[in-house]
Design a protein around this nucleic acid. Sequence first.
DNA 1: GAGCGTAACTGCATCGAGTGCAACATTGCA
DNA 2: TGCAATGTTGCACTCGATGCAGTTACGCTC
Lengths: 212, 212
Amino acid sequence: MGVVSLRERKRARTRQAVVDAAVDLFERNGYEGTTVADIAAAAEIGTRTFFSYFPSKEEVLFPEADVRVRAALTAIDNRSPSEGPAEVLVRALREVTAESSEITGPTARLRMRLMREVPAILGRGLQIQLDGQRQIARHLQAAYPDSLDAVSAAALAGALTGAVTGALLALFEDPDRPDDPEELKMAVERATEIALAPWTASADGVREESRA
Amino acid sequence: MGVVSLRERKRARTRQAVVDAAVDLFERNGYEGTTVADIAAAAEIGTRTFFSYFPSKEEVLFPEADVRVRAALTAIDNRSPSEGPAEVLVRALREVTAESSEITGPTARLRMRLMREVPAILGRGLQIQLDGQRQIARHLQAAYPDSLDAVSAAALAGALTGAVTGALLALFEDPDRPDDPEELKMAVERATEIALAPWTASADGVREESRA
DNA sequence: GAGCGTAACTGCATCGAGTGCAACATTGCA
DNA sequence: TGCAATGTTGCACTCGATGCAGTTACGCTC
C-alpha cells in the first residue's frame, strides 16, 4: 500500500505542479487567456506532455473529482440496515461536504468563478457531477434492490444533486455575497430538505411551513 | 407580427437546411466523423457561413431549446392564485412535455443517443438545461416573493429537473429498451412525484409506499 | 553495479473548431 | 436607379488535441 516508486512520486509531484501553475495563470490571465503551452512552460514540461497528465485543458480544474464520489459510494455501501434510501443519501452527501476545503478552498473558489464565466468549464463540471450522480444511483439501487428500481434510484439521486447544485449556483450568482462558509453549508442543508423532505423525518417542520 | 421579409424567410430556410444536413450526416458518419465543412457543403453554404447560423457545431443539435423554456416560463407567470410552487412547476413541466415530439421525435432520439456517446454534447445539453432551470427558478421566485427566497426557488427547480433528467438518462441507459413513448411519460411522472411529493397532494400514495 | 526492458517525455506534423478581417453579393428602401 | 444595411464567403490564423517516432529515465535482475 504505502509503497510508492520514485516514478509515481515524481509523477504526482509534476501533476501537482501543473495544477498549481494552471491555477496561478488562470487567476492572472483568465482561462481563455491562458494556453496549454503556457501552463506546460510554467510547470516546466513539454506541451505534449501536458496531455499525458490531463486529457484536456478543463480537466486540470477537477483534479480529484473522483475521490469525493468514492467517499459517497462507500458511505452508501456501508449503510446501516435501519436506514432508508434518503437517510443514506443525506449521509453520503455529508461525507462529501465534510472536507469543507473542497468547497471553500481557494481552488474551489476559482473553479466556481470559472464555471460562471466560462461555458466550457460549466459544461465539464456538470458532466462530472452527472457522472457521480449516476454511480450514486447505481449503488443506491444495489443497496435497496427490492424497494427501488433503477429509474427511481436515478430520480432520487438526481433530485438531491439537482437541488444542491441549483442552490449553490444561485448562492454564487449574487455578486456581493459575503464569503461565509457557514452560509454554504446552510444552503446545502436547505436544498437537502427541499429535495428529500418526504423521505426523511427530520425535515417535517420545513415541509409544513412551506406547504402553506 | 406575421410580416416576414424575404431575408428572414430565406435565412430560416437555410437554417433548417443546415439542421437537416447535420442530422443526416451525424446519423450516417457519427458526430466526430462529421466536420463542420461537411455540414456546410451538404447545406450548400460556405464553411465560414455555418458559424453565422450556429455559434458552434454542438448547437445545431439544440435548435429550439429556448422555445420550450419560454413555454414553461409563461406557464409559471400565468399561475392561478390557488396554486402552490410545486403545482406550478408540475404544470410548467407538463407544458414542456406536451409536445411529445420534442422528446420522442427522430431528432430528439438522435440527440439522446449522441448525449450518451459524445461527452461534448452531453456537456452542452446539461448546460442548456441548467440555463432553463435558472430562468424557471427566477420566475418561480418572482411568482412567490414572500414564501420563496432565491436559493429555495433554485433548489426546488433543481430538484425537479434533476430528478427528471436522472430518470430519463437512466431509462436511456438500458440498451435494449422498448421504444415506447408511454414509458417515457411514466418515467417523467414518477420522477416528478419523487422530487415533489411533499409539496403536492397527488403523490401521497407513492410516498407512503416508498417510505417502507 | 552493469545492462536491459519498459514507461515516460518530447518535438513534429497534422487535423478540426472557431474568429477577425476584408471583399463581394444581395436585399430593402428612398 | 442608387445607396445603405445585411448576409455570404475565402483567407489567414490561433488553439486544443492526437498519432508517431526518437530519446531519456527508471526499475529490476543477474
